[in-house]
Amino acid sequence: MTAQEAQWLKKIIAKEELHVLFQPIVNASQQAVYGYEALIRGPRTSPLHSPLRLFEVATQAGKLVELDILCRRLAIYRFAELKQPGLLFLNVMPLTIVERDFREGLTLGFIRDSGLPPARVVIELTEHVPIHDYELMRQAVDHYRTMGFQVALYAKRRVSDEQGVAAAYVDLDNFKAFNDAYGYARGDHIIISLSRLLASAGG
């Protein structure tokens, strides 16, 4: 972490200079957008534009939990403000839950303020920070569920190699230009068409 990056981080947190993007999540079997994942970006002109670097620097500066809570608050308010349909997927670090949210119920407070029903919010527990304390995690998951949230825990999916499986990554060339020219609604339509094609060919 450079001195310049540390300065930027301080400013970003103090002035809440973060930008929230919503990426559509498609249900591959029903081929429809059923929610949006909130993604965070630092200021475009800063060395912390990339969320990876932003969170790295925050970790080194001991501000990880503070940044995570700020990101969550901004994402919830922005989602409510845009009146987006469907579910809101929030990436939450287990560390934050254990240190702050578990005691203080911050997420529920933000959601009440925003007017979103908790049932439309899915808490995704990310694996950026490894989960060591399984008992505490289980309590945290129960805690969120009791408050009415949906909780998604990402376990690495094990695939049987009995018959042999090939993995393929699919993406689109020139998709950014299409989105820029035709707008996100038509971009989402492309994603749904693609998921329909993949499901009919290989699902």
């Binding site: 990426q23 042999g164 090939a166 990554y169 998709f175 993949l198 060919a201 290989g202 699902g203």
Partner: peptide, 28 residues
Amino acid sequence: GGFIGHIGGDDFMMLLPLDHWESVCGQI
């Protein structure tokens, strides 16, 4: 009998049975 996962945006992942993967990819 494959598995289709949406990673987000225009990124997808497929797990396909070895016997079929070439024909499925070609068709897509």
